[in-house]
Design a protein around this nucleic acid. Structure first.
Lengths: 335, 335
DNA sequence: CTGAAAGCGCTAACAT
DNA sequence: ATGTTAGCGCTTTCAG
C-alpha cells in the first residue's frame, strides 16, 4: 500500500505538499497539485485515515449506539442521522447496545477508544448517572429517545405525554366516552408518559379513568392480543381502545377480529409510533406519528454543533407528535 | 486524555508493559498487572484504538456497505453479521451506499481508507467489473445478495431460482393450474431469477407460461396493486397469483379486497421474502422465506475466515429458501 | 507556495 | 518478566 512518502518522492515534492493536496487545504500551485495527483494515481495511493486521525486528533466520525440494527423503529432514526452527517461530510460508526447495560457501556467505551468526535446514544439500559458522569467528562454526545433532567440539553426526544394525550383526544373528538387503554411496560418511561397523556385527555373531558379498562402490556404484538382478549369481556363498557404502540394495536385488532368484532364499526383503535406496517394493517391503522427520521436528524444536528461547533438553525430538544388519520376510528354506534 | 506513557510512569513500568496488560498478551506478573491497572484507573486511561491500529496495522473492524439503514430487509442482515462479528470480537463499521454507483464506490474507498480488515458489500449499483477488480487488489471482502460468476467465491446469496420455483410449486400443489405472476423490475437479477423459477415450476407441471397473466412491477407495494388491477380483468383465467416480493403481494391483496375478491377463497396469493409485516397482513401471507439473518451471519463468517484466517465450519455460498405457510393460499374453487 | 522535522499514541521486535 | 527503541503514515508548526 503506497504511502504519502512514496507519492511525494515520485512527484518530487515534500510529503507536506502531498498532505496539502489530499486535504486540499492551504494553497498548492495547480501544477504541483497535478503532479501529485498523477503520482497518486500511478501508485494507486489510498489515503490512510487512521494515520491522519492519529496525527490530527480528529476522526471525522460520530459514534452511534443503537439498541438493535433491525426493527422498524431504529432504522429510520439512523437513516435520519446518516443523511445529516453525510451532508456535513462526517462518517458514522454504528455499534449495537442490545439494551444491555454492560454491552451498552462497552460499546460507548469502544467508540470513545476509537476517538469518535462525538456520540449519538440511543441507550436504554445504562443508568442516568452513568450518562450524567459522561457529560462531566466533556465527551460530546447526545441522548436520543430519553429525557434526563440533569442533562436535558443533551437529550432529544418525542413529547410522549402530548402523544398520549393526542391519541385519546382523537378518540374523544370522534365521540367516544368509554375508552380502554393498553399500555406498554410501565417500567419504561415512555410507556408511563404516554399513559399520563391518556389520563390528561380523559380528565380534561371530565371522564374518570377506569382501571377495569386498563391493561399493561409490554409493547409486543402478543401482549396487545392478550390485553384485548382480557378486555373484550366488558366490551359493553367501551367503544374504543388506545394502544401505547402499533404492535400492540395490531395484536388488539387481531383479537377483535378473532372475536368477530368489527374494527372500527364495533370498536375503534388507535396506535402509537406509525411504524411501517401500520398502513398495511386491515383496517389501516390510525396512529400517532413518531417522527423517527426527524429525531435522528435532530440528534445529528446537535452532535454536529457540539463536536464541530457547526452553527445550525432549528435545534430542538423535544419534538411534537401528530396524528396520522387512517381507517381504524369511527364514531361510536348508538348502543 | 491520558496516554500509555503517563500510565507507565505512574506505575513505574515501561510503556511496553502497559501495552501488554492492555492487550493481555504475553505474560505479565500479577503484581505488575495490578500496578498498571491501578494507574490506568486513577488516570482515567482510555485505550487509543486509532494509535494501536496504526502501529499494528490491524483495526479489528469489518466495514459493511448497506443500501439503506432502514427497511425490513437490511436490518436483519446487518444484525446477523453483527452477532457473528461480536462473537469474534470484531467491530463493524456501517456505511450507506444508497444504491448509487458513485456513493457506493466512495464508501468502499472510505472503508478501505479506514483500513478495515475486511468488507461486507451489499451493493447494487457498482458494476461487476469494479468488484472483480477489487478482488484483484487482494482486498478481503464478500458480496451479499448478488452473484458474480467470476468471483463466485466472494458471493453469498439466496437461491432465487429455487425460491421462485418453490412459490409456484406450492400453488401448483394446492391444485392451482392457472397462475398469474407479478414480477419485480426485470433489470434486477433477483427479479429475473425468481421469474425463471416460476417458469420452471410451470414447465415441470406441463403448463404453458401465459403472458396475459404476467405483469412486471418494481418491487414496491403500489406496483403490486396496479399489477393486480390490470390482471383482475381476466380473473376467470387464473385462481392464484405469485408475487416476486411481499410488498407487491400486499398491494395485490389490497387490490383484490377493493374489488371484493376474497383472498384466499377466490384468489390465492403467495409472496416472497417473508419480511416482518407479512405476518400482519390479512390474511397472513404465505411466502418464501428469505433467510436474511442467516445470510448476514454467513457473510460475517466468510469475512472472518478471509480477513483473519479464522477456521469456521459450515461455510456456504448459496442458501436455500423455504416456504412459510400461512393463510393466503387455499385450493381453487370449482368453477 | 513549499520543505524540514517533530510528534500523535501505540506495538513489536529485540534485548536483557 | 520487563525494558528499549524503532517505527506505523500522517499532520502541523515553523522556516524560507
Amino acid at each position: 500500500m503506497a504511502t504519502i512518502k512514496q507519492v511525494s518522492e515520485l512527484a518530487g515534492v515534500s510529503s507536506a505538499t502531498v498532505s496539502r493536496v489530499i486535504n486540499n487545504a492551504d494553497s498548492v500551485k495547480e501544477k504541483t497539485r497535478n503532479l501529485v495527483l498523477e503520482a497518486m494515481r500511478t501508485l494507486g495511493y489510498r489515503h490512510n485515515v487512521i494515520a491522519a486521525s492519529l496525527a490530527s486528533n480528529k476522526t471525522n466520525t460520530i459514534g452511534y449506539v443503537v439498541p438493535e440494527l433491525h426493527g422498524s423503529f431504529f432504522g429510520p432514526m439512523m437513516s435520519g442521522s446518516e443523511a445529516e452527517l453525510r451532508n456535513a461530510n462526517k462518517h458514522m460508526f454504528v455499534a449495537t447496545g442490545h439494551s444491555d447495560e454492560k454491552v451498552e457501556q462497552e460499546e460507548i467505551e469502544a467508540l470513545l477508544g476509537r476517538r469518535c468526535d462525538g456520540l449519538i446514544l440511543h441507550v436504554e439500559a445504562v443508568s442516568d448517572s452513568y450518562l450524567i458522569d459522561l457529560a462531566r467528562q466533556d465527551v460530546p454526545f447526545v441522548v436520543v429517545n430519553r429525557y434526563i433532567e440533569e442533562i436535558g440539553d443533551y437529550c432529544i426526544s418525542l413529547d410522549n405525554v402530548q402523544g398520549g394525550y393526542l391519541a385519546t383526544k382523537t378518540l374523544l373528538d370522534a365521540g367516544h366516552k368509554d375508552i380502554a387503554y393498553i399500555a406498554g411496560s410501565l417500567f419504561k418511561a415512555d410507556a408511563r408518559e404516554r399513559l399520563t397523556g391518556h389520563k390528561q385527555a380523559l380528565e380534561e373531558a371530565g371522564i374518570m379513568f377506569n382501571p377495569a379498562l386498563f391493561y399493561e402490556g409490554d409493547f409486543q404484538a402478543h401482549s396487545g392480543f392478550e390485553g384485548m382478549m382480557s378486555l373484550v369481556g366488558h366490551l359493553d363498557a367501551f367503544t374504543a381502545v388506545a394502544c401505547a404502540n402499533d404492535e400492540m394495536a395490531s395484536g388488539a385488532i387481531e383479537a377483535l377480529r378473532q372475536e368477530g368484532i368489527d374494527v372500527p364499526q364495533n370498536c375503534s383503535v388507535i396506535g402509537f409510533d406509525n411504524i411501517e406496517f401500520s398502513s398495511y394493517l386491515t383496517p389501516k391503522l390510525t396512529t400517532v406519528n413518531y417522527p423517527m427520521r426527524e429525531i435522528g436528524q435532530m440528534a445529528a444536528r446537535w452532535i454536529l454543533a457540539r463536536a464541530y461547533g457547526k452553527e445550525t438553525l432549528e435545534l430542538e430538544h423535544v419534538l411534537p407528535p401528530h396524528i396520522i388519520e387512517r381507517d381504524s376510528i369511527t364514531r361510536p354506534r348508538r348502543r
